[in-house]
Design a protein around this nucleic acid. Structure first.
Ligand SMILES: [Mn+2]
Ligand SMILES: [Mn+2]
Ligand SMILES: [Mn+2]
Ligand SMILES: [Mn+2]
Lengths: 216, 216
DNA sequence: TAAAATATTTAGACTGATCTAAATTTATTA
DNA sequence: TAATAAATTTAGATCAGTCTAAATATTTTA
């Protein structure tokens, strides 16, 4: 098996790839709060194991075995988050750090049984899709609230930012996963948005509108 | 916090202390499948942190902070084992290795919530006591079946050996935790024991009789 | 109680993961 | 396109945990 550290690198590369295709040394260093020199060392090791495609100075992509490992870590992370929220009554802003540890527990049998126990959930507490036992998953079509025009409606289905502060704020104003919303008005000047949520009007900033994702 | 490795050393020292008081370098090395020289290195580090009392060549004991950590690891190990058996339908011979990983998840909040979720179990699947949130626990009075005379009765309440082979054997002959047993006859020659279990007579070897613990 | 056996520690080396500082390559921009 | 800036890699060090082989201490036993 691979070390914790290798798993964290593969996961970071996977997440970064979703936005940018090929991933740079500095991106990885920033995302793992480490130094570029350390990243280079690890990239050599992962390339040696054929988990990434790496050419000096050119950035990296995951190989298919590398991607498989990354997805299995993400599956574990999201299933554990679901467990913590649904069974142990954690709040959605409290689960990430614990899941960062739990995702490295190696037993595949354990995670598949946990999945059974919870009835094969499709999305984690933050709306992110949970890969199935074979690594397959489908994301729903998400767009930020800021992409809606006045009078358009949607269902809160995900977040673009996972910081506890942002999640706590959303909880406080009841903008939680599954809520139906309707855009009432968009302020031309600062792009803040007034929404109808559960028959109540609330105003959110452009920043929030950019980071809160909806379907439909 | 402490590393994975430090936690394993403290736990090993704790378990060994229960039998022998002060624990030797070689005992620790055997129990962790490592070499005496590595143990000496780690003992120096743990002594430096004041988690053990260590004088060269004289063996070690845990300090009170060291014991507290050891007990917290054991609490986590046993609660996770209980969870795996009761909620995820693992067999009692399948849980140990997974629990060896799970016991190092650091969140105290997590383990206390898991404890709540399961209704504060007092014993793990092998009959071992689960320390409570403050580290307190009481063992019931256990003795091996081999300590019983003919016609004496008891309730299966623990095992002295945790190997999958032994646990599978016990499961097969239904000598599981909670079963009432009665000694019918003890063979003078090989000390094998004939028991009454659920209205059925079964014969167990001296070895099994020594490793299967009962109450009453 | 002195030799022999056993247990333990020390010395020195290796691996994985990390760092800083210096060198090199690639990208930007004047 | 040549100079400058930014990104990346290399060199060399450190730390935790481990090992083997050698040195030293303790225990056993004759
Ligand atoms: Mn998370
Ligand atoms: Mn999540
Ligand atoms: Mn166990
Ligand atoms: Mn157990």
């Amino acid at each position: 098996m691979n070390t914790f550290t290798e798993e964290n690198y593969l996961k970071a590369i996977y997440h970064l790839s979703l936005q940018s295709g090929s991933v740079s040394t500095n991106q990885i260093a920033a995302s793992l709060s480490t130094k570029a020199a350390s990243v280079t060392d690890m990239l050599k090791k992962l390339a040696e194991k054929e988990l990434i495609n790496y050419t000096k100075y050119q950035g990296v992509t995951l190989t298919s075995p590398g991607e498989k490992i990354a997805i299995s870590i993400i599956r574990k992370h999201r299933l554990w988050e679901y467990f913590l929220v649904e069974k142990l009554n954690f709040k959605w802003d409290e689960v990430h750090d614990v899941a960062e540890e739990l995702e490295h527990i190696s037993s595949k049998d354990l995670i598949d049984r946990l999945d059974d126990f919870m009835g094969h959930p499709k999305y984690d507490p933050h709306g992110d899709p949970i890969p199935d036992s074979s690594g397959k998953f489908k994301t729903h079509e998400l767009k930020p609230i800021s992409a809606l025009a006045a009078n358009e409606i949607g269902v809160v289905s995900g977040v673009r930012e996972h910081s506890p502060a942002f999640l706590q704020y959303l909880e406080k104003v009841q903008l939680i996963i599954g809520r139906k919303i309707k855009v009432i008005e968009i302020n031309d000047y600062d792009h803040s948005v007034i929404l109808l949520v559960e028959d109540k009007k609330i105003q959110i900033s452009r920043e929030v509108a950019n980071n809160l994702l909806i379907t439909r």
